[in-house]
Design a binder for these strands. Structure first.
Length: 566
DNA sequence: GCCGTTTTCGGCCCGACTGTTTTCAGTCG
Protein backbone atom coordinates (compact mmCIF):
# COMPACT_ATOMS: atom_id res chain seq x y z
CA UNK A 1 0.00 0.00 0.00
CA UNK A 2 0.95 3.59 -0.52
CA UNK A 3 2.25 4.30 2.96
CA UNK A 4 4.51 7.17 1.92
CA UNK A 5 1.61 8.81 0.14
CA UNK A 6 -0.54 8.57 3.25
CA UNK A 7 2.16 10.07 5.44
CA UNK A 8 2.81 12.97 3.09
CA UNK A 9 -0.93 13.54 2.77
CA UNK A 10 -1.31 13.56 6.56
CA UNK A 11 1.45 16.15 6.87
CA UNK A 12 -0.21 18.38 4.27
CA UNK A 13 -3.59 17.96 5.93
CA UNK A 14 -2.08 18.92 9.26
CA UNK A 15 -0.49 21.93 7.62
CA UNK A 16 -3.86 22.89 6.12
CA UNK A 17 -5.45 22.71 9.60
CA UNK A 18 -2.69 24.77 11.19
CA UNK A 19 -2.72 27.25 8.34
CA UNK A 20 -6.47 27.71 8.74
CA UNK A 21 -6.17 28.13 12.51
CA UNK A 22 -3.54 30.79 12.19
CA UNK A 23 -5.72 32.85 9.91
CA UNK A 24 -4.36 31.68 6.59
CA UNK A 25 -6.19 32.40 3.36
CA UNK A 26 -9.13 30.02 2.95
CA UNK A 27 -8.39 29.30 -0.69
CA UNK A 28 -4.86 28.32 0.11
CA UNK A 29 -6.18 26.07 2.89
CA UNK A 30 -8.30 24.35 0.29
CA UNK A 31 -5.33 23.94 -2.00
CA UNK A 32 -3.44 22.07 0.70
CA UNK A 33 -6.45 19.92 1.51
CA UNK A 34 -7.03 19.15 -2.12
CA UNK A 35 -3.40 18.21 -2.65
CA UNK A 36 -3.47 16.01 0.47
CA UNK A 37 -6.51 14.16 -0.81
CA UNK A 38 -5.01 13.77 -4.26
CA UNK A 39 -1.72 12.42 -2.92
CA UNK A 40 -3.45 9.95 -0.58
CA UNK A 41 -5.57 8.71 -3.46
CA UNK A 42 -2.76 8.60 -6.00
CA UNK A 43 -2.25 5.02 -7.15
CA UNK A 44 1.53 5.30 -7.55
CA UNK A 45 4.06 5.77 -4.80
CA UNK A 46 5.10 9.44 -4.84
CA UNK A 47 8.61 8.67 -3.62
CA UNK A 48 9.24 6.90 -6.92
CA UNK A 49 8.12 9.59 -9.35
CA UNK A 50 7.56 13.29 -9.73
CA UNK A 51 4.98 14.49 -7.23
CA UNK A 52 4.16 17.38 -9.58
CA UNK A 53 2.35 14.90 -11.79
CA UNK A 54 -0.36 14.58 -9.12
CA UNK A 55 -3.24 16.90 -10.01
CA UNK A 56 -3.52 19.72 -7.48
CA UNK A 57 0.19 19.68 -6.70
CA UNK A 58 2.10 22.64 -8.05
CA UNK A 59 5.55 24.05 -7.49
CA UNK A 60 5.10 25.18 -3.89
CA UNK A 61 3.45 22.02 -2.57
CA UNK A 62 5.87 19.81 -4.48
CA UNK A 63 8.76 21.50 -2.65
CA UNK A 64 7.10 20.87 0.70
CA UNK A 65 6.46 17.24 -0.15
CA UNK A 66 10.02 16.72 -1.33
CA UNK A 67 11.34 18.14 1.91
CA UNK A 68 8.94 15.89 3.78
CA UNK A 69 10.16 12.84 1.90
CA UNK A 70 13.77 13.60 2.70
CA UNK A 71 13.43 14.46 6.39
CA UNK A 72 9.90 13.70 7.59
CA UNK A 73 8.68 17.29 7.83
CA UNK A 74 8.96 20.66 6.11
CA UNK A 75 9.98 24.07 7.34
CA UNK A 76 6.57 25.77 7.21
CA UNK A 77 4.97 22.86 9.04
CA UNK A 78 7.56 22.99 11.80
CA UNK A 79 6.98 26.69 12.17
CA UNK A 80 3.21 26.42 12.57
CA UNK A 81 3.53 23.46 14.90
CA UNK A 82 5.56 25.75 17.10
CA UNK A 83 2.79 28.33 17.17
CA UNK A 84 -0.18 26.04 17.88
CA UNK A 85 0.07 23.44 20.67
CA UNK A 86 -0.79 19.89 19.74
CA UNK A 87 -3.70 19.91 22.20
CA UNK A 88 -5.32 22.85 20.43
CA UNK A 89 -5.25 20.91 17.18
CA UNK A 90 -6.84 17.99 19.01
CA UNK A 91 -9.60 20.35 20.13
CA UNK A 92 -10.69 20.76 16.52
CA UNK A 93 -11.55 17.07 16.46
CA UNK A 94 -14.35 17.79 18.92
CA UNK A 95 -17.55 17.81 16.86
CA UNK A 96 -18.91 21.35 16.37
CA UNK A 97 -15.58 22.90 17.34
CA UNK A 98 -13.68 24.13 14.31
CA UNK A 99 -10.40 25.97 13.84
CA UNK A 100 -11.83 29.44 14.55
CA UNK A 101 -13.30 28.61 17.92
CA UNK A 102 -10.33 26.47 18.92
CA UNK A 103 -7.81 29.22 18.27
CA UNK A 104 -10.10 31.75 19.98
CA UNK A 105 -10.27 29.60 23.12
CA UNK A 106 -6.52 29.20 23.09
CA UNK A 107 -5.53 32.78 22.48
CA UNK A 108 -8.18 34.44 24.66
CA UNK A 109 -8.49 31.93 27.51
CA UNK A 110 -5.34 29.85 27.27
CA UNK A 111 -7.32 26.65 26.78
CA UNK A 112 -4.91 24.25 25.11
CA UNK A 113 -6.49 20.77 25.11
CA UNK A 114 -9.88 19.02 25.20
CA UNK A 115 -9.29 18.22 28.88
CA UNK A 116 -8.53 21.86 29.64
CA UNK A 117 -11.68 22.85 27.80
CA UNK A 118 -13.81 20.52 29.89
CA UNK A 119 -12.26 21.91 33.03
CA UNK A 120 -12.87 25.49 31.90
CA UNK A 121 -16.51 24.76 31.18
CA UNK A 122 -16.88 23.06 34.56
CA UNK A 123 -15.32 26.06 36.28
CA UNK A 124 -17.70 28.41 34.49
CA UNK A 125 -14.89 30.20 32.70
CA UNK A 126 -16.84 30.25 29.44
CA UNK A 127 -19.88 31.92 30.99
CA UNK A 128 -20.52 35.23 29.28
CA UNK A 129 -17.87 34.68 26.64
CA UNK A 130 -19.16 35.93 23.30
CA UNK A 131 -20.34 33.09 21.08
CA UNK A 132 -20.37 30.46 23.82
CA UNK A 133 -23.87 30.09 25.27
CA UNK A 134 -25.18 27.24 27.45
CA UNK A 135 -26.12 25.10 24.47
CA UNK A 136 -22.66 25.37 22.95
CA UNK A 137 -21.15 24.40 26.29
CA UNK A 138 -23.36 21.32 26.52
CA UNK A 139 -22.52 20.31 22.94
CA UNK A 140 -18.82 20.72 23.60
CA UNK A 141 -18.97 18.55 26.73
CA UNK A 142 -20.84 15.89 24.81
CA UNK A 143 -18.31 16.09 21.99
CA UNK A 144 -15.39 15.70 24.39
CA UNK A 145 -17.03 12.64 26.00
CA UNK A 146 -17.60 11.15 22.58
CA UNK A 147 -14.02 11.70 21.60
CA UNK A 148 -12.67 10.21 24.82
CA UNK A 149 -14.96 7.23 24.56
CA UNK A 150 -13.45 6.44 21.17
CA UNK A 151 -10.22 6.56 23.18
CA UNK A 152 -7.16 5.30 21.48
CA UNK A 153 -9.03 2.82 19.35
CA UNK A 154 -8.48 3.24 15.65
CA UNK A 155 -10.57 2.00 12.75
CA UNK A 156 -9.55 -1.16 10.98
CA UNK A 157 -8.13 0.65 7.94
CA UNK A 158 -5.45 2.34 10.04
CA UNK A 159 -4.73 -0.79 12.09
CA UNK A 160 -4.49 -3.07 9.06
CA UNK A 161 -2.09 -0.84 7.17
CA UNK A 162 0.05 -0.42 10.26
CA UNK A 163 0.11 -4.17 10.93
CA UNK A 164 1.10 -4.85 7.35
CA UNK A 165 3.81 -2.22 7.56
CA UNK A 166 5.19 -3.72 10.79
CA UNK A 167 5.14 -7.24 9.39
CA UNK A 168 6.86 -6.13 6.20
CA UNK A 169 9.55 -4.32 8.21
CA UNK A 170 10.26 -7.42 10.32
CA UNK A 171 10.08 -10.08 7.62
CA UNK A 172 13.79 -10.59 7.15
CA UNK A 173 16.31 -13.34 7.35
CA UNK A 174 15.58 -15.96 10.01
CA UNK A 175 11.94 -15.01 10.54
CA UNK A 176 10.15 -18.27 9.87
CA UNK A 177 6.61 -17.10 10.48
CA UNK A 178 5.00 -13.78 11.27
CA UNK A 179 1.33 -12.78 11.31
CA UNK A 180 -1.15 -10.55 13.11
CA UNK A 181 -3.73 -12.03 15.47
CA UNK A 182 -6.21 -10.39 17.85
CA UNK A 183 -9.24 -8.31 16.98
CA UNK A 184 -7.58 -7.24 13.74
CA UNK A 185 -7.57 -10.84 12.51
CA UNK A 186 -11.20 -11.09 13.59
CA UNK A 187 -11.85 -8.03 11.38
CA UNK A 188 -13.44 -5.90 14.08
CA UNK A 189 -14.24 -2.40 12.84
CA UNK A 190 -12.16 -0.74 15.57
CA UNK A 191 -8.92 -2.00 17.07
CA UNK A 192 -7.43 -1.22 20.48
CA UNK A 193 -3.97 -2.65 19.93
CA UNK A 194 -2.26 -4.85 17.40
CA UNK A 195 -0.96 -8.33 18.29
CA UNK A 196 1.77 -9.75 16.11
CA UNK A 197 3.15 -13.26 16.54
CA UNK A 198 6.45 -14.45 15.14
CA UNK A 199 8.62 -17.53 14.99
CA UNK A 200 12.00 -15.86 14.91
CA UNK A 201 15.34 -15.44 16.66
CA UNK A 202 15.37 -13.40 19.87
CA UNK A 203 17.22 -10.61 18.05
CA UNK A 204 13.96 -9.67 16.32
CA UNK A 205 12.85 -7.88 19.49
CA UNK A 206 15.79 -5.53 19.32
CA UNK A 207 15.18 -4.84 15.64
CA UNK A 208 11.54 -4.12 16.40
CA UNK A 209 12.36 -1.58 19.12
CA UNK A 210 14.69 0.27 16.75
CA UNK A 211 12.13 0.71 13.98
CA UNK A 212 11.46 4.32 12.91
CA UNK A 213 7.72 3.95 13.57
CA UNK A 214 8.35 3.22 17.28
CA UNK A 215 7.73 6.28 19.44
CA UNK A 216 7.98 4.64 22.86
CA UNK A 217 8.86 1.19 24.22
CA UNK A 218 6.26 0.25 26.81
CA UNK A 219 7.61 -3.17 27.76
CA UNK A 220 10.58 -5.19 26.58
CA UNK A 221 10.68 -8.82 27.66
CA UNK A 222 11.97 -12.08 26.22
CA UNK A 223 8.67 -13.23 24.81
CA UNK A 224 6.82 -9.99 24.39
CA UNK A 225 7.67 -6.44 23.41
CA UNK A 226 5.09 -3.65 23.50
CA UNK A 227 5.57 -0.33 21.80
CA UNK A 228 3.55 2.73 21.05
CA UNK A 229 3.96 3.80 17.43
CA UNK A 230 4.33 7.34 16.17
CA UNK A 231 0.66 7.16 15.19
CA UNK A 232 -0.24 6.43 18.84
CA UNK A 233 -1.27 2.81 18.34
CA UNK A 234 0.11 0.09 20.62
CA UNK A 235 1.72 -2.90 18.92
CA UNK A 236 2.67 -6.08 20.80
CA UNK A 237 5.18 -8.44 19.26
CA UNK A 238 5.33 -11.97 20.71
CA UNK A 239 7.87 -14.65 19.93
CA UNK A 240 6.33 -18.11 19.94
CA UNK A 241 7.88 -21.58 19.55
CA UNK A 242 7.47 -22.97 16.05
CA UNK A 243 5.70 -26.08 17.35
CA UNK A 244 3.10 -23.89 19.14
CA UNK A 245 2.25 -21.68 16.18
CA UNK A 246 -1.33 -22.90 15.75
CA UNK A 247 -2.08 -22.80 19.46
CA UNK A 248 -0.63 -19.31 19.80
CA UNK A 249 -2.57 -18.00 16.82
CA UNK A 250 -5.74 -19.55 18.19
CA UNK A 251 -5.15 -18.16 21.68
CA UNK A 252 -4.15 -14.63 20.68
CA UNK A 253 -6.79 -14.29 17.99
CA UNK A 254 -9.58 -14.67 20.55
CA UNK A 255 -12.09 -13.53 21.20
CA UNK A 256 -11.75 -14.12 24.89
CA UNK A 257 -15.33 -15.39 25.01
CA UNK A 258 -14.74 -17.77 22.12
CA UNK A 259 -11.62 -19.11 23.81
CA UNK A 260 -13.44 -19.66 27.11
CA UNK A 261 -16.00 -21.75 25.23
CA UNK A 262 -13.26 -23.79 23.52
CA UNK A 263 -11.26 -24.29 26.70
CA UNK A 264 -14.35 -25.55 28.54
CA UNK A 265 -14.69 -28.24 25.91
CA UNK A 266 -11.05 -29.23 26.36
CA UNK A 267 -11.48 -29.40 30.14
CA UNK A 268 -14.54 -31.65 29.77
CA UNK A 269 -12.38 -34.11 27.85
CA UNK A 270 -9.80 -33.95 30.60
CA UNK A 271 -7.47 -31.87 28.45
CA UNK A 272 -5.91 -28.44 28.76
CA UNK A 273 -5.74 -25.76 26.06
CA UNK A 274 -3.22 -22.92 26.28
CA UNK A 275 -1.23 -20.76 23.92
CA UNK A 276 1.30 -23.61 23.78
CA UNK A 277 -1.06 -26.33 22.69
CA UNK A 278 -3.80 -28.80 23.50
CA UNK A 279 -2.48 -31.23 26.11
CA UNK A 280 -3.45 -34.42 27.87
CA UNK A 281 -1.17 -34.24 30.86
CA UNK A 282 2.26 -33.82 29.29
CA UNK A 283 1.23 -35.28 25.96
CA UNK A 284 0.66 -32.84 23.10
CA UNK A 285 -2.58 -33.58 21.28
CA UNK A 286 -2.37 -30.65 18.87
CA UNK A 287 -0.42 -27.39 18.61
CA UNK A 288 1.11 -26.82 15.19
CA UNK A 289 -1.95 -25.56 13.36
CA UNK A 290 -5.32 -24.14 14.30
CA UNK A 291 -6.97 -26.77 12.12
CA UNK A 292 -5.49 -29.60 14.22
CA UNK A 293 -6.69 -28.01 17.44
CA UNK A 294 -10.25 -27.49 16.24
CA UNK A 295 -10.26 -30.97 14.71
CA UNK A 296 -9.16 -32.54 17.99
CA UNK A 297 -12.12 -30.84 19.64
CA UNK A 298 -14.47 -32.25 17.00
CA UNK A 299 -14.89 -29.17 14.84
CA UNK A 300 -13.86 -27.80 11.49
CA UNK A 301 -11.61 -24.71 11.53
CA UNK A 302 -13.68 -21.65 12.38
CA UNK A 303 -12.93 -18.44 10.45
CA UNK A 304 -11.45 -15.81 12.82
CA UNK A 305 -14.18 -13.33 11.90
CA UNK A 306 -16.75 -15.69 13.44
CA UNK A 307 -14.97 -16.30 16.76
CA UNK A 308 -17.17 -14.18 19.01
CA UNK A 309 -19.07 -16.83 21.00
CA UNK A 310 -22.12 -16.02 18.96
CA UNK A 311 -23.18 -19.62 18.40
CA UNK A 312 -20.28 -20.49 16.08
CA UNK A 313 -19.00 -23.29 18.31
CA UNK A 314 -22.36 -25.02 18.48
CA UNK A 315 -22.80 -24.61 14.73
CA UNK A 316 -19.32 -25.99 14.08
CA UNK A 317 -19.93 -29.02 16.31
CA UNK A 318 -23.10 -29.80 14.36
CA UNK A 319 -21.30 -29.35 11.06
CA UNK A 320 -23.61 -26.42 10.37
CA UNK A 321 -21.10 -23.60 10.09
CA UNK A 322 -22.27 -21.41 7.21
CA UNK A 323 -19.93 -20.89 4.30
CA UNK A 324 -19.37 -17.18 4.76
CA UNK A 325 -18.75 -14.83 1.87
CA UNK A 326 -15.12 -14.16 0.89
CA UNK A 327 -13.39 -11.42 -1.08
CA UNK A 328 -13.10 -13.80 -4.04
CA UNK A 329 -16.87 -14.11 -4.14
CA UNK A 330 -17.38 -10.44 -4.99
CA UNK A 331 -18.23 -10.01 -8.66
CA UNK A 332 -18.49 -6.25 -8.62
CA UNK A 333 -18.74 -2.97 -6.78
CA UNK A 334 -22.01 -1.01 -6.80
CA UNK A 335 -21.02 2.29 -5.16
CA UNK A 336 -18.08 4.28 -6.52
CA UNK A 337 -17.30 7.87 -7.47
CA UNK A 338 -15.28 9.71 -10.09
CA UNK A 339 -13.92 13.23 -10.42
CA UNK A 340 -17.25 14.29 -11.91
CA UNK A 341 -18.24 14.85 -8.27
CA UNK A 342 -15.98 14.38 -5.26
CA UNK A 343 -13.83 11.50 -6.47
CA UNK A 344 -10.30 12.30 -7.56
CA UNK A 345 -9.80 9.79 -10.39
CA UNK A 346 -11.33 9.95 -13.85
CA UNK A 347 -14.05 7.60 -15.03
CA UNK A 348 -11.61 5.86 -17.39
CA UNK A 349 -9.00 5.34 -14.66
CA UNK A 350 -11.51 4.04 -12.12
CA UNK A 351 -12.97 1.59 -14.64
CA UNK A 352 -9.51 0.40 -15.68
CA UNK A 353 -8.61 -0.21 -12.03
CA UNK A 354 -11.86 -2.11 -11.47
CA UNK A 355 -11.16 -4.28 -14.51
CA UNK A 356 -7.79 -5.22 -13.04
CA UNK A 357 -9.67 -6.64 -10.03
CA UNK A 358 -11.42 -9.04 -12.38
CA UNK A 359 -14.93 -7.77 -11.69
CA UNK A 360 -17.82 -8.97 -13.83
CA UNK A 361 -19.66 -5.70 -13.31
CA UNK A 362 -18.94 -2.26 -11.93
CA UNK A 363 -21.22 0.64 -11.11
CA UNK A 364 -20.35 4.32 -11.30
CA UNK A 365 -22.52 6.17 -8.79
CA UNK A 366 -21.60 9.83 -8.60
CA UNK A 367 -23.57 12.18 -6.37
CA UNK A 368 -26.94 13.65 -7.31
CA UNK A 369 -27.91 17.37 -7.43
CA UNK A 370 -29.53 17.75 -3.99
CA UNK A 371 -26.10 17.64 -2.41
CA UNK A 372 -25.53 21.11 -3.77
CA UNK A 373 -21.80 21.26 -3.18
CA UNK A 374 -21.31 18.47 -5.71
CA UNK A 375 -22.67 20.61 -8.53
CA UNK A 376 -24.29 17.70 -10.30
CA UNK A 377 -26.76 18.38 -13.07
CA UNK A 378 -28.87 16.18 -15.30
CA UNK A 379 -26.79 17.21 -18.29
CA UNK A 380 -23.61 16.10 -16.56
CA UNK A 381 -25.15 12.79 -15.56
CA UNK A 382 -26.38 12.11 -19.08
CA UNK A 383 -23.05 13.05 -20.60
CA UNK A 384 -21.38 10.65 -18.19
CA UNK A 385 -23.84 7.95 -19.26
CA UNK A 386 -22.70 8.43 -22.87
CA UNK A 387 -19.08 8.17 -21.83
CA UNK A 388 -19.85 4.99 -19.88
CA UNK A 389 -21.53 3.49 -22.93
CA UNK A 390 -18.54 4.31 -25.12
CA UNK A 391 -16.13 2.96 -22.51
CA UNK A 392 -18.12 -0.27 -22.33
CA UNK A 393 -16.88 -1.34 -25.76
CA UNK A 394 -13.33 -1.57 -24.35
CA UNK A 395 -14.41 -3.92 -21.55
CA UNK A 396 -16.22 -6.87 -23.06
CA UNK A 397 -15.75 -8.92 -19.88
CA UNK A 398 -17.05 -6.35 -17.41
CA UNK A 399 -20.51 -4.85 -17.52
CA UNK A 400 -20.51 -1.15 -16.66
CA UNK A 401 -23.56 0.02 -14.79
CA UNK A 402 -24.43 3.70 -14.83
CA UNK A 403 -25.77 4.58 -11.42
CA UNK A 404 -26.01 7.44 -8.96
CA UNK A 405 -25.84 8.05 -5.24
CA UNK A 406 -29.07 9.81 -4.35
CA UNK A 407 -29.72 11.92 -1.28
CA UNK A 408 -32.52 10.88 1.04
CA UNK A 409 -34.10 14.20 1.99
CA UNK A 410 -35.56 14.89 5.44
CA UNK A 411 -38.96 13.65 4.23
CA UNK A 412 -37.57 10.52 2.57
CA UNK A 413 -37.80 11.76 -1.01
CA UNK A 414 -34.80 11.62 -3.34
CA UNK A 415 -33.30 13.71 -6.15
CA UNK A 416 -34.69 13.72 -9.71
CA UNK A 417 -38.12 12.71 -11.01
CA UNK A 418 -39.06 9.09 -11.71
CA UNK A 419 -38.43 9.32 -15.47
CA UNK A 420 -34.84 10.36 -14.82
CA UNK A 421 -34.30 7.72 -12.14
CA UNK A 422 -35.55 5.02 -14.48
CA UNK A 423 -32.63 5.75 -16.76
CA UNK A 424 -30.07 4.58 -14.19
CA UNK A 425 -28.98 0.96 -13.99
CA UNK A 426 -28.61 1.15 -10.22
CA UNK A 427 -29.28 3.70 -7.48
CA UNK A 428 -27.78 3.96 -4.01
CA UNK A 429 -29.72 6.30 -1.71
CA UNK A 430 -28.01 7.77 1.34
CA UNK A 431 -28.55 10.25 4.14
CA UNK A 432 -26.16 13.20 3.89
CA UNK A 433 -27.94 15.84 5.97
CA UNK A 434 -30.37 16.35 8.87
CA UNK A 435 -28.63 13.75 11.01
CA UNK A 436 -30.38 14.87 14.17
CA UNK A 437 -33.97 14.10 13.29
CA UNK A 438 -36.03 12.32 15.94
CA UNK A 439 -36.10 8.54 15.92
CA UNK A 440 -39.64 8.54 14.50
CA UNK A 441 -38.82 11.02 11.73
CA UNK A 442 -35.61 9.23 10.81
CA UNK A 443 -37.37 5.85 10.70
CA UNK A 444 -40.14 7.23 8.48
CA UNK A 445 -37.49 8.81 6.26
CA UNK A 446 -35.69 5.50 5.65
CA UNK A 447 -38.96 3.64 5.17
CA UNK A 448 -40.05 6.14 2.53
CA UNK A 449 -36.73 5.61 0.74
CA UNK A 450 -37.08 1.81 0.89
CA UNK A 451 -40.62 2.02 -0.46
CA UNK A 452 -39.45 4.06 -3.42
CA UNK A 453 -39.22 1.51 -6.25
CA UNK A 454 -36.43 3.57 -7.84
CA UNK A 455 -34.18 3.06 -4.82
CA UNK A 456 -32.18 -0.17 -4.98
CA UNK A 457 -29.65 0.15 -2.15
CA UNK A 458 -29.57 2.20 1.05
CA UNK A 459 -26.02 3.59 1.25
CA UNK A 460 -23.99 3.71 4.50
CA UNK A 461 -27.25 3.42 6.46
CA UNK A 462 -26.29 4.67 9.95
CA UNK A 463 -24.09 7.45 8.47
CA UNK A 464 -21.66 7.02 11.37
CA UNK A 465 -18.02 8.08 11.03
CA UNK A 466 -15.90 6.21 13.53
CA UNK A 467 -14.51 8.60 16.13
CA UNK A 468 -16.17 11.55 14.40
CA UNK A 469 -19.89 11.17 14.08
CA UNK A 470 -22.40 9.07 15.98
CA UNK A 471 -24.85 6.89 14.05
CA UNK A 472 -28.29 8.38 13.45
CA UNK A 473 -31.12 7.27 15.70
CA UNK A 474 -33.69 5.07 13.97
CA UNK A 475 -35.82 1.99 14.54
CA UNK A 476 -33.71 -0.37 12.49
CA UNK A 477 -35.90 -3.38 13.09
CA UNK A 478 -38.81 -1.53 11.50
CA UNK A 479 -36.64 -0.35 8.61
CA UNK A 480 -35.22 -3.82 7.96
CA UNK A 481 -38.68 -5.38 7.92
CA UNK A 482 -39.64 -2.82 5.30
CA UNK A 483 -36.46 -3.33 3.26
CA UNK A 484 -36.99 -7.09 3.20
CA UNK A 485 -40.54 -6.55 1.96
CA UNK A 486 -39.61 -4.04 -0.75
CA UNK A 487 -36.45 -5.86 -1.87
CA UNK A 488 -34.24 -2.90 -1.02
CA UNK A 489 -30.66 -3.91 -0.24
CA UNK A 490 -28.75 -2.49 2.72
CA UNK A 491 -25.22 -1.44 1.97
CA UNK A 492 -22.17 -2.63 3.82
CA UNK A 493 -20.00 0.39 3.11
CA UNK A 494 -16.44 -0.92 3.20
CA UNK A 495 -14.81 2.46 3.65
CA UNK A 496 -13.07 1.71 6.95
CA UNK A 497 -13.99 4.85 8.88
CA UNK A 498 -17.62 4.15 8.01
CA UNK A 499 -17.85 0.34 8.25
CA UNK A 500 -21.55 0.88 7.84
CA UNK A 501 -23.74 -1.11 8.44
CA UNK A 502 -21.91 -2.46 11.47
CA UNK A 503 -21.93 -6.24 11.93
CA UNK A 504 -24.55 -6.27 14.72
CA UNK A 505 -27.06 -4.47 12.51
CA UNK A 506 -26.18 -6.68 9.54
CA UNK A 507 -27.08 -9.67 11.67
CA UNK A 508 -30.38 -8.10 12.64
CA UNK A 509 -31.17 -7.18 9.04
CA UNK A 510 -30.29 -10.66 7.83
CA UNK A 511 -32.64 -12.10 10.43
CA UNK A 512 -35.43 -10.14 8.75
CA UNK A 513 -34.46 -11.39 5.30
CA UNK A 514 -32.71 -8.29 4.00
CA UNK A 515 -30.15 -8.56 1.16
CA UNK A 516 -26.86 -6.65 1.18
CA UNK A 517 -24.45 -4.96 -1.17
CA UNK A 518 -20.78 -4.79 -0.13
CA UNK A 519 -19.46 -1.59 -1.69
CA UNK A 520 -16.22 0.33 -1.51
CA UNK A 521 -17.69 3.84 -1.81
CA UNK A 522 -14.39 4.59 -3.56
CA UNK A 523 -13.34 8.16 -4.18
CA UNK A 524 -9.91 7.14 -5.50
CA UNK A 525 -8.30 4.08 -7.03
CA UNK A 526 -6.68 2.72 -3.84
CA UNK A 527 -10.09 2.76 -2.13
CA UNK A 528 -11.28 -0.08 -4.35
CA UNK A 529 -9.18 -2.38 -2.13
CA UNK A 530 -11.25 -1.48 0.94
CA UNK A 531 -13.71 -4.20 -0.02
CA UNK A 532 -11.81 -6.61 2.23
CA UNK A 533 -13.11 -4.68 5.25
CA UNK A 534 -16.71 -4.92 4.07
CA UNK A 535 -16.24 -8.64 3.57
CA UNK A 536 -14.96 -8.81 7.16
CA UNK A 537 -18.18 -7.22 8.41
CA UNK A 538 -20.23 -9.63 6.30
CA UNK A 539 -18.34 -12.58 7.73
CA UNK A 540 -18.84 -11.35 11.27
CA UNK A 541 -22.56 -11.34 10.52
CA UNK A 542 -22.40 -14.82 8.96
CA UNK A 543 -23.49 -13.71 5.50
CA UNK A 544 -23.28 -16.18 2.64
CA UNK A 545 -23.22 -15.39 -1.06
CA UNK A 546 -26.97 -15.77 -1.15
CA UNK A 547 -27.27 -12.71 1.11
CA UNK A 548 -24.97 -10.45 -0.92
CA UNK A 549 -26.28 -9.19 -4.25
CA UNK A 550 -22.88 -8.29 -5.67
CA UNK A 551 -21.68 -11.87 -5.41
CA UNK A 552 -24.47 -12.86 -7.77
CA UNK A 553 -24.08 -13.40 -11.50
CA UNK A 554 -25.01 -10.33 -13.57
CA UNK A 555 -28.40 -11.70 -14.67
CA UNK A 556 -29.54 -12.36 -11.13
CA UNK A 557 -28.32 -8.94 -10.01
CA UNK A 558 -30.15 -7.16 -12.84
CA UNK A 559 -33.33 -9.04 -12.03
CA UNK A 560 -33.03 -7.92 -8.41
CA UNK A 561 -32.58 -4.33 -9.58
CA UNK A 562 -35.62 -4.60 -11.81
CA UNK A 563 -33.38 -4.00 -14.81
CA UNK A 564 -33.45 -7.59 -15.95
CA UNK A 565 -32.97 -7.32 -19.69
CA UNK A 566 -29.38 -8.52 -19.54
C1' DG B 1 -1.58 27.82 -3.79
C1' DC B 2 -3.51 25.84 -8.13
C1' DC B 3 -5.28 26.26 -12.61
C1' DG B 4 -6.50 27.54 -17.72
C1' DT B 5 -12.00 25.12 -24.74
C1' DT B 6 -13.07 32.23 -19.90
C1' DT B 7 -5.30 30.86 -20.05
C1' DT B 8 -0.62 34.08 -16.67
C1' DC B 9 -4.96 36.89 -13.49
C1' DG B 10 -8.85 36.13 -11.11
C1' DG B 11 -11.37 32.90 -9.95
C1' DC B 12 -11.67 28.97 -6.60
C1' DC B 13 -18.08 23.19 -4.92
C1' DC B 14 -22.74 26.14 -2.31
C1' DG B 15 -26.27 26.19 1.01
C1' DA B 16 -28.37 24.90 5.39
C1' DC B 17 -28.24 24.52 10.07
C1' DT B 18 -26.97 25.86 14.85
C1' DG B 19 -26.64 28.77 18.45
C1' DT B 20 -26.08 32.83 18.99
C1' DT B 21 -27.39 36.91 17.74
C1' DT B 22 -30.71 41.24 16.82
C1' DT B 23 -28.05 40.42 11.57
C1' DC B 24 -24.40 36.65 11.63
C1' DA B 25 -20.14 33.60 12.19
C1' DG B 26 -18.79 29.10 12.37
C1' DT B 27 -19.32 24.40 11.11
C1' DC B 28 -20.65 20.77 8.23
C1' DG B 29 -21.57 17.82 4.15
Amino acid sequence: MARVNDEAAAALQEYADLFAMTGGDAFRVRSYQKAAKAIAGHPEDISGGDVRSVPGVGEAIAKKVEEFLSRGSFRQLDELRGRVPEGVRRMTRIPSLGPKKAIFLFSELGIDSPAALREAIGAGRLAGVKGFGPRTEANLLKGIDQMEQAGRRVHIGIAMELAEQVIASLSGEGVRRIAYAGSLRRMKDTIGDIDILAVAPASLMEEFRAMPYVAEVIAAGEKKTSVRTTGGVQVDLRLVPAESWGAAMQYFTGSKEHNVRIREMAVKKGWKLSEYGLFEGERVIASRTEEEIYAALGMPWIPPSMREDGGEVAAALKGGLPEVVTLDDLKGDLHTHTDLTDGIASLADMVAAAARLGYAYYAITDHAPDLVMQRMTLDKALAQRDRVARLQTSYPGMRLLHGTELNIGPDGTVDWPVEVLEGFDVTVASVHSHFNQSRAEMTARFIAACENPQVHIIGHPTTRKLGKREPVDADWEEIFRCAARTGTAMEIDSYPDRSDLPAELVRLARHHGVKFSIDSDSHAIPHLAHQRYGVGIAQRAWLTTDDVINTWPLERLLAFLGRGDG
